[in-house]
Computed example of a mutant assay.
Amino acid sequence: MQKISLIVPCYNEELTIEIFYNTVEKVFHDNPETFKDIAHEYRFIDDGSTDKTLPELQQLQAKHPETVHYLSFSRNFGKEAGLAAGLQHAEGDYVAVMDVDLQDPPALLPEMLELLQTGNYDCVGTMRANRHGEPAIRSFFSRAFYSVINKISKVQIVPNARDYRLMTRQMVDAILELPEYNRFSKGIFNWVGFKTTYLTFENAPRSAGESHWSFWQLLNYSIEAIVDFSEVPLKIATFIGGMFAFLSIIGMIFIIIRKLFWGNSVGGWASLVSIMLFVSGIQLFCLGIIGNYIGKIYLESKHRPQYIVKEQR
């Protein structure tokens, strides 16, 4: 019998776990023909929650020991670590990644499975048809991020695509071959290739609780994604450095010629200081770009585990 594994990262989601489980179970119950001879399991990942998420998972697992499993981290390692842990522990022939807040509609699961069973696709992803209900500034920066990363990276990411997707075991095994510590799952899903199609859905509010992603966290996540999947920022730093070196040579030649033919003129210290501050700022900017890449290398070279499991059922 084939099996579907549902990977569900959780961080301070005590209010949504039972709602999520009941909603997904209803989808399986209401589509007996689609899920005929297909078992399913839940792989909840408690990412070091500080509320009652773990007790909720313990109670749910005690009620449904055959289908509900969970991992609890020793601390908060981040969503990417949670996704990696879920993929590593999932046993299904098909593996789905879902958010517990039900902003990823479980009602799409039957259609996703049917598309995979045709054999024409290895992955069925999802994307939001719109960003209604989201702050305007977040929507603007999201569009800007997708525009930038798709221009500077060889890996193309579908705008408004979600982590919510259903994959074949072959694709999951390919993802597990990537051992990097710094991970951006949307990029990894596209980097490994395989035939992927997308379903669209209307943006929906959370079933309960509040989002744990702040604007600055999302901005930092975007910067990490660009660093992970593009070398263009390094090339930009090189170009800027070369351009200013060239301009400095032109400036030196101009000063020497002016000295030889017209004599020395008194220059203003304000303009000189302004130029020095500007050039110093550009240098620090370029060093910051280089430092970001070096920091990634530093973290990779330590070979630390992506997460530490405190409790597992």
Rank of each mutant, 00 (worst) to 15 (best):
A39I: 00
A39Q: 10
A39H: 07
A39C: 08
H40S: 04
E41K: 14
E41H: 11
Y42E: 02
R43C: 09
F44K: 06
F44N: 05
I45S: 05
I45E: 02
I45F: 05
I45N: 02
I45D: 01
D46R: 12
D47H: 08
G48I: 06
T50Q: 08
T50K: 12
T50H: 02
T53D: 00
T53C: 07
P55L: 12
E56R: 15
L57F: 09
Q59K: 15
Q61C: 14
Q61I: 00
K63S: 13
P65D: 05
E66N: 14
V68T: 12
H69F: 15
S72T: 04
S74F: 04
S74T: 15
R75H: 12
R75A: 09
F77D: 01
G78L: 13
G78N: 11
K79P: 01
K79H: 12
A81R: 11
A81Y: 07
G82E: 01
G82Q: 07
A84Q: 09
A85T: 05
A85R: 12
A85Q: 10
G86Y: 07
H89R: 14
A90K: 10
E91V: 10
V95G: 02
V97K: 10
V97Q: 11
D99M: 02
Q103H: 03
Q103M: 13
D104P: 00
P105I: 04
A107T: 07
L109C: 05
L109H: 02
E111F: 01
E114L: 15
E114K: 15
Q117Y: 02
T118P: 00
N120Q: 12
N120H: 13
N120S: 12
N120G: 12
N120C: 05
D122I: 00
D122L: 05
C123W: 00
M127T: 06
M127Y: 14
